[in-house]
Amino acid sequence: MQEKLVLIAALAAMFVALPGSAESAEAVASDAAVSAATDSNGTEVPELSSFANAHRSELVNAGVRKIEAKADKRTVHVSTVTSGVFFHWPKNVKRVTVNVLVPADGPVLVKTRDYSAANQEQYRASIEALIQRSAGYARQQTIETTSPSLRAP
């Protein structure tokens, strides 16, 4: 019982700033801002987000909500409004780790970890190929799931 109380007290201390301490409140706010911008999927890259945002209508019309691609994986996962789609990386496209988030309203967000100005063209080419392929597969899936002639009797 004593161990549980110590554990609860330790957890509470991690999440509560000391009263009257402006420094600790600022640190908590700073940590929250960093964790919002950076997560396990990487950091938002404004240059790539604005590039991908040019294709927003294409992605939304196809029903794409999220594209998850990893450099060390052979397949790309696309979340759509109806379900998910998997496909292999397009040939002759450099694999990069990137997440493209397409909210129903608002701009497209691109998150990655290894982006730099030196590899900007590589990322743009990879994202362009992923967007085209993702939109194509998502449209195909939507047609297959909504067309009455393709449904099983």
Results as ranks from 00 to 15, higher is better:
5 L>P: 03
10 A>I: 03
24 S>M: 10
15 F>Y: 07
37 A>W: 14
24 S>T: 07
8 I>K: 14
35 S>V: 10
3 E>N: 10
12 A>W: 05
54 A>Q: 13
13 A>I: 03
21 S>N: 12
28 V>F: 07
5 L>H: 10
6 V>L: 15
6 V>P: 00
24 S>H: 05
7 L>E: 15
20 G>W: 05
40 S>K: 11
41 N>W: 09
43 T>F: 09
46 P>A: 03
2 Q>H: 08
39 D>E: 05
12 A>E: 11
38 T>K: 13
41 N>P: 00
43 T>V: 15
35 S>K: 14
52 A>I: 06
12 A>V: 02
25 A>V: 13
38 T>G: 00
57 S>C: 00
6 V>C: 01
8 I>G: 03
32 A>C: 04
25 A>C: 06
1 M>I: 04
47 E>F: 08
7 L>S: 10
27 A>R: 12
8 I>W: 06
30 S>V: 01
56 R>S: 11
39 D>M: 06
54 A>G: 11
5 L>A: 11
34 V>D: 04
31 D>R: 11
57 S>I: 05
11 L>Y: 04
55 H>R: 14
17 A>E: 08
39 D>W: 06
8 I>P: 01
5 L>V: 06
14 M>T: 06
1 M>W: 04
17 A>L: 02
24 S>C: 02
48 L>K: 04
7 L>H: 08
29 A>Q: 07
19 P>F: 00
50 S>P: 01
19 P>K: 04
49 S>I: 10
28 V>R: 15
27 A>G: 05
8 I>D: 10
38 T>F: 15
42 G>R: 03
41 N>T: 08
12 A>H: 09
5 L>D: 14
51 F>G: 00
22 A>D: 13
6 V>E: 15
2 Q>P: 05
50 S>D: 10
55 H>C: 05
19 P>V: 00
22 A>V: 12
10 A>Y: 06
51 F>N: 02
51 F>Q: 02
43 T>M: 14
17 A>T: 12
2 Q>K: 10
33 A>E: 11
24 S>E: 15
37 A>P: 04
7 L>R: 13
39 D>A: 06
8 I>E: 14
38 T>P: 00
20 G>T: 02
7 L>V: 02
10 A>E: 13
57 S>D: 15
2 Q>F: 05
4 K>E: 10
47 E>N: 03
18 L>F: 08
42 G>D: 02
53 N>T: 08
11 L>H: 08
15 F>N: 12
46 P>S: 02
10 A>S: 10
39 D>R: 09
56 R>M: 04
